[in-house]
Design a protein around this nucleic acid. Structure first.
Length: 495
RNA sequence: GACCCGCUAGCUCAGUUGGCAGAGCAUUUGACUUUUAAUCAAAGGGUCAGAGGUUCAAAUCCUCUGCGGGUCACCA
């Protein structure tokens, strides 16, 4: 048994005295006529005198006691629900001795229900003049300080519920997150996309380049990967005849944790039969600008920069690198040796599994161009070497019809015209296996079943993935991904 | 994984040159029937993250460990 603090002991004594009075310290159902927002919406247009002369109907609401001010035979408190706080005014001569004692003995953090009429105080605050007070739940631990709230970052993540109680900004962020995800669903459903669910346990690694988590199924006695991307399953559904499908769900990547990375993160992935890179670009811009607009944020202040969702740019990766560094990857004379020598002249390390000019082009782009992008920009034309699931460009097969969306140096989306040629796809997988043998532990594996699916014929299609957490960060102006994840991963607390 | 910074009361934070462990809020007791970071009076509350070392003496200096934050690396 852990040692209790003085305050915890006092609260447990108060709990015992509630029991003695026959009051359930952890209460029962309480029917509310209003939440705090409804009270404000309904009554804030009335004056103090109007509410005094024509008393409101009796309303009931409930919430957690956040502040409390005793005044002898009367008292004030603020109670809080999901929507905010409302002040309550409790007079002994109105509620009677029993309820007033209940009020006096209530602690900050306790949850109560109130009945009463709506009034405005001398200082002009909309309040409830309580006629009946109901104890609903005892709080056995003290809340953080009322003025500063919980500010310790570690504690805010470990005890998110306390963070949500005391920090309005945090509450708003997660409400916004929920809105963004439901807007995505609404916008996509309205365009006729079908929401689907595909496996999270994958027998074969694929759909992205990343290190996986590995788990084990007992009955089947075989290992499974937690999915790094749902791509290959979703495309099987396009083979199966669905016109457009999407999935919003968790992906898992066994990599470092940082301000931008959590081991599990949420992606929206979508496939559109008969579409291509351009339809995905249009869709991406539509989703981002519509969601931003509906949140009332045509522009966002992020990282001391103004991001304008009305301004979208487009640049080919080879052009971006050419204008930044002068080296021309369009040049048909460009060889791997030349490209590698250039990279090494910049003191970049070229790993063994880099075997094509495209690997170098991407390296240079990531190293020198990515961070220079501020406004929403589609970087397209990724080299074939790093795009094993994207269709080759019809005019220049060194590049694929793929784009990534960058905003303020970070990737928010990845899309391409899907590779639907099973013969080409099998060769691409074989290239990946070669890379794996050369030491790329993020290369994907051969998925024969997926190739077989393509052999039945997949219509030309566009595909898109959007990192939901990062979008939420941007639209809530959150610095860290942990600020948009309710329960970010932490090492267990030491004793 | 590497480097830098942090960890003191329930919470937010002070703590000087190594010399009795501090404040505000919260808690307890008393006063107060329109207060609002309520006010006034008094009181209680500490494994200074943990372990070890230096010293007459350590929250303070040194070493190790834990957890967190930041930067880098990897990635979305």
């Amino acid at each position: 048994m852990e040692k209790l603090s003085e305050q915890e002991l006092v609260r447990r004594q108060k709990l015992a005295s509630l029991v003695e009075k026959g009051i359930d310290p952890f209460g029962q159902r309480f029917d509310r006529t209003h939440n705090t927002k409804m009270i404000k919406d309904e009554f804030s247009n009335f004056s103090k005198e109007e509410l005094h002369d024509n008393p409101s109907p009796t309303i009931s609401t409930a919430g957690r006691i956040m502040t409390k001010r005793g005044k002898g035979k009367a008292g004030f408190a603020h109670i809080m629900d999901q929507y905010g706080q409302i002040q309550i005014y409790v007079r002994m001569d109105v509620v009677g001795d029993e309820d007033f004692e209940l009020f006096n003995n209530a602690d900050l953090g306790d949850i109560v229900g109130v009945e009463g009429t709506v009034m405005i105080t001398n200082t002009g605050e909309l309040s409830i003049r309580v006629t009946k007070l109901t104890h609903l739940a005892k709080s056995l631990r003290p809340l953080p300080e009322k003025f500063h709230g919980l500010t310790n970052i570690e504690e805010r993540y470990r005890r998110r519920y306390v963070d949500l109680i005391t920090n309005e900004k945090s509450r708003e962020t997660f409400i916004t997150r929920s809105k963004i995800i439901s807007m995505f669903r609404e916008l996509l459903n309205d365009r006729g996309y079908l929401e689907v669910e595909t496996p999270i346990l994958h027998p074969i690694l694929g759909g992205a380049n990343a290190k996986p988590f590995v788990t084990h199924h007992n009955a089947l006695d075989m290992p499974f990967y937690l999915r790094i991307a749902p791509e290959l399953y979703l495309k099987r559904l396009i083979v199966g005849g669905f016109d457009g499908v999407y999935e919003i769900g968790r992906n898992f990547r066994n990599e470092g944790i940082s301000i931008k990375h959590n081991p599990e993160f949420t992606m929206m992935e979508l496939y559109q039969a008969y579409g291509n890179i351009d339809t995905m670009m249009e869709l991406t811009q539509y989703l981002f600008s519509t969601v931003a607009k509906r949140l009332g944020k045509d522009t966002v202040e992020y990282n001391e920069k103004t991001i304008d969702f009305g301004t979208w740019h487009k640049v080919h990766m080879a052009d971006a690198v050419k204008s930044e560094l002068g080296i021309d990857f369009w040049d048909t004379e460009m060889t791997f040796e030349k490209a590698k020598a250039f990279a090494e002249s910049k003191e970049l390390e070229v790993p063994d599994h880099f075997t094509g000019t495209g690997h170098i082009l991407n390296l240079l782009f990531e190293e020198y161009c990515e961070e220079t992008i501020v406004q929403p920009t589609f970087v397209y034309g990724h080299p074939i070497e790093i795009s094993p699931l994207a269709k080759k460009n019809i005019d220049d097969p060194r590049f694929t019809d793929r784009f990534e969306l960058f905003i303020d140096g970070r990737e928010y989306g990845n899309a391409f015209t899907e590779l639907n040629d099973p013969i080409d796809q099998r060769e691409r997988f074989e290239e990946q296996i070669k890379e794996k043998e050369l030491g790329n532990d993020e290369a994907s594996e051969m998925d024969y079943d997926f190739v077989e699916a393509l052999e039945y014929g997949m219509p030309p299609a566009g595909g898109l993935g959007i990192g939901i957490d990062r979008l939420v960060m941007l639209l809530t102006e959150s610095v860290s991904i942990r600020d948009v994840l309710l329960f970010p991963h932490m090492k267990p607390r030491s004793n």
